[in-house]
């Protein structure tokens, strides 16, 4: 009887993995000697907004990067709808940390958004009026049309983050993966970004974001993954986002973590 139950459970998780737009199993990444993340299993629910939460150095960004193949993991598998990720690239949009790029790069806002359409354009395809219109529509969704011809270094941090989101929108993906989308942005931008992300979710897309501000997790997200090198707990916010689980994730550092939403390490 117990055995049957266990099998049932295994079948259920397997089914959940096949339906998941991002199913990670046994993912381990190490920088040097100590693992940054160790044997992480995450099954992201389709059509939901999932927050990845944890203290500084917990491996949140590392988890995203390894899941998307931006860095090479030591071990583990990643699948989208049961398929290897490389076959699903055009259905995934990744928004890296804003601080990870050189904003002095000689390019305009509209050109950055057009980068999101690389898979349509290909190596040598010409940028036509329809592509430009599509890019402008993406800028419009984040309220940045007035800045289309600005050099990207002339934008504020919040505006830069909106441009990154517009570039992801241009990819017309099914899965949106964002690394610290609210780090160092103004309140208006945070509102604008969360509105766009919720509209994506309402259109049936899946959103996964590394998030720092514990106070807004229940407001913004449906599911949460509590990470500290390993997964401490994962599931719907209502069940998982408890004081006990947070204490287990942050240890004694919970108060400091709450007071320090600015940090970009992880």
């Amino acid at each position: 009887m117990t055995l049957a139950l266990v099998q049932d459970d295994a079948k259920l998780t397997e089914a959940a993995r096949m339906a998941s737009p991002l199913a990670v199993r046994g993912l381990t990444v190490s920088y040097g000697q100590t693992p940054a993340i160790f044997s992480v299993d995450v099954t992201v629910r389709a059509g939901a907004m999932t927050a990845i939460v944890g203290p500084n150095g917990a491996g949140k960004s590392t988890l995203l990067k390894a899941a998307l193949g931006v860095i090479t993991p030591l071990a583990g598998t990643v699948a989208m709808l049961g398929q290897p990720l490389d076959r699903m690239r055009d259905r995934i949009a990744y928004v890296p940390q804003r601080a990870s790029v050189d904003w002095d790069f000689p390019t305009r806002v509209i050109d950055v958004v057009l980068m999101g359409m690389y898979r349509q354009l290909g190596l040598l395809g010409r940028v036509r009026a329809t592509h430009r219109a599509q890019a402008m529509a993406c800028l419009d969704r984040v309220g940045m049309t007035d800045f289309a011809t600005r050099q990207i270094g002339q934008l504020s941090g919040g505006q830069q983050q909106r441009v990154f989101l517009a570039r992801a929108l241009a990819q017309e993906a099914d899965l949106y993966v964002l690394d610290e989308p609210f780090a160092g942005v103004d309140a208006a931008t945070e509102k604008a970004i969360i509105a766009v992300l919720k509209s994506l979710r309402d259109a049936g897309r899946t959103v996964v974001a590394v998030h720092h501000d514990l106070a807004t997790v229940p407001d913004y997200f449906d599911d949460v993954v509590l990470l500290n090198t390993q997964v401490v707990a994962a599931g719907p916010v209502a069940h998982v986002f408890t004081e006990d689980n947070l204490q287990a994730t942050y240890g004694g550092r919970l108060t400091t973590a709450r007071a320090d939403p600015e940090s970009v390490a992880g």
């Binding site: 931006v70 995934i92 990744y94 890296p96 354009l121």
Partner: peptide
Amino acid sequence: RPLAMSTFDEGFARGMG
């Protein structure tokens, strides 16, 4: 295009495959 993309934002370029 790939050169410009990977020079500006390598993480994004890798995320695109």
